[in-house]
């Protein structure tokens, strides 16, 4: 079953996370714990997010709000990349003629030729 972590476990597992940082990150909604019967819990995704937040904190000496913004941009970038990959995969299965037409439309729109 998907492993969930308490706040103490999260602080112990994420290398440079401190209780103070977690408070700030929660305030900036970098992570939002899940409410559950046994209290507030975090999942693997939250741990990876906190690891990244701490790295950005250390590397750029950035504040929680700025880190939140950076990660939100990363979410958008990575999400769009994943979708684009799916789209490209779907296009590869299309007949040569269809792919050619699409390439032409993109070229026109992007480069106006």
């Amino acid at each position: 079953m998907t492993r969930l972590y308490s706040e103490e476990e999260v602080i112990a597992r994420v290398s440079s996370l401190t209780p103070g940082r977690l408070v700030a990150y929660r305030h900036a909604r970098i992570v939002v714990p899940m409410e559950a019967e046994r209290g507030e819990l975090y999942e693997g995704l939250d741990l990876a997010r906190l690891e990244l937040a701490c790295e950005l904190h250390d590397h750029y000496e950035a504040e929680a709000e700025a880190i939140g913004l950076m990660i939100s941009l990363i979410d958008q970038l990575h999400g769009v990349r994943a979708e684009l990959r799916e789209l490209t995969r779907a296009l590869e299965d299309q007949p040569e003629e269809v792919r050619g037409r699409i390439a032409e439309v993109i070229r026109q729109a992007r480069f106006g030729e």
Binding site: G44, L45, A48, I74, H78
Partner: peptide
């Protein structure tokens, strides 16, 4: 092995996106 956030971030169910 570090778990990069990217793997989660790219997944369709990312609750933060």
């Amino acid at each position: 092995q570090q778990q990069y956030y990217r793997q989660y971030s790219e997944a369709a169910g990312n609750p933060y996106r």
